[in-house]
């Protein structure tokens, strides 16, 4: 298991990287943390003819608080850095909660925040989380810059709107309104393994305990992460009662997902645990919202 040969570029600035990507066009592939890409290359399933390694681009690795109380995270920030960052812990504990489920510590120390999102693995946690948090993705090309909301970024399994001559540069997360709670839950066969189903919810309550807003993503149960419409339909404007949450679970798990059977789980099982996970995720998210997010 040795990769095929490839041409290698290690730019030290974003501009240099974009120049190189522009030159290479379809032949170029961005190397971020490489924890999925290099494994695929070792199997010779991936055979890029040139890699543009962003690991020397120091300017892509940062976690900056934004003026509005959110965060901007540079694409090359290691997942473990995000996991242990005080601003992240304070503002978006959901990210910390999720990070612990991403593979194993050794992978998180090398794998990058932006790389994982751009990889758009339907069983990857961060692409789903980017969607449920409605992160804003900054995509840069040579002389171009555009912002895409995460739900529009991911268009298929392992597919995004990022063109070969572009790269994901930054992700911006807006602050949660007050009385927002979030909860990530997953079922995987082993710690660090791929989830057979996972659910993340972010909910906001008003002062009367009425659900003001809800975002819920269902992961690993379709070819792309699913942002639940049913959750919004059923919950917004209502009290998040046990029955209401059950209704979301029932509706979402029967009509919004399209799970596949594979070696580790049948489609039926996936559907069944998705229902369970929706209840668990929403229930705890609302509890947390009541406690002001804690």
């Amino acid at each position: 298991m040795k990769p095929v040969n490839f041409d290698y570029y290690a730019p030290s600035s974003v501009d240099e990287a974009l120049d190189t990507l522009a030159e290479l066009g379809y032949d170029g592939k961005v190397l971020a943390g490489g924890q999925s890409l290099i494994a695929a290359m070792n199997f010779r399933m991936a055979r890029p003819s040139a890699l543009v390694d962003l690991n020397n681009v120091a300017e892509l690795s940062y976690i900056k608080p934004t003026a509005d109380g959110g965060l901007a995270i540079g694409t090359m920030t290691r997942v473990s850095t995000v996991e242990h960052n005080q601003d992240v812990i304070q503002r978006f504990p959901l990210l910390v909660e999720v990070a612990k489920f991403i593979a194993h510590p050794q992978i998180r120390r090398r794998g990058t925040f932006g790389g994982a999102i751009a990889h758009a693995d339907p069983a990857g946690q961060l692409p789903s989380i980017s969607m449920v948090m409605n992160m804003q993705a900054l995509i840069k090309g040579k002389g171009t810059e555009r912002w895409v909301a995460a739900p529009d970024l991911i268009i298929g399994p392992f597919m995004t709107v990022i063109e070969p001559n572009e790269m994901l540069a930054e992700l911006v997360i807006k602050p949660h309104p007050p009385r927002t709670g979030a909860k990530y839950v997953q079922v995987s066969r082993q710690s660090g393994g791929y989830a057979q189903s996972a659910v993340a919810s972010i909910v906001t309550l008003d002062e009367n305990e009425i659900c003001k807003d809800v975002h819920m993503v269902l992961m690993s149960v379709a070819e792309v992460p699913i942002l639940s419409e049913k959750a919004r339909e059923i919950l917004i404007g209502n009290k998040p009662s046990k029955d209401a949450i059950e209704a979301v679970a029932e509706a979402a798990s029967t009509s919004e997902i399209d799970p596949a059977s594979d070696l580790h789980a049948s489609a039926d099982y996936r559907r069944s645990i998705t229902r369970v996970l929706i209840v668990r995720s929403l229930t705890e998210a609302f509890e947390r919202a009541k406690r002001g997010g804690k």
Binding site: S80, Q106, I107, R109, R110
Partner: peptide, 21 residues
């Protein structure tokens, strides 16, 4: 050589990572 077994773990700038990846 696909980043799961951990036998190749080394310290890269002080952090434990897979040297096969």
């Amino acid at each position: 050589e696909h980043g799961i077994c951990g036998a190749c773990t080394i310290l890269f700038d002080g952090e434990a990572v897979r040297s096969c990846l």
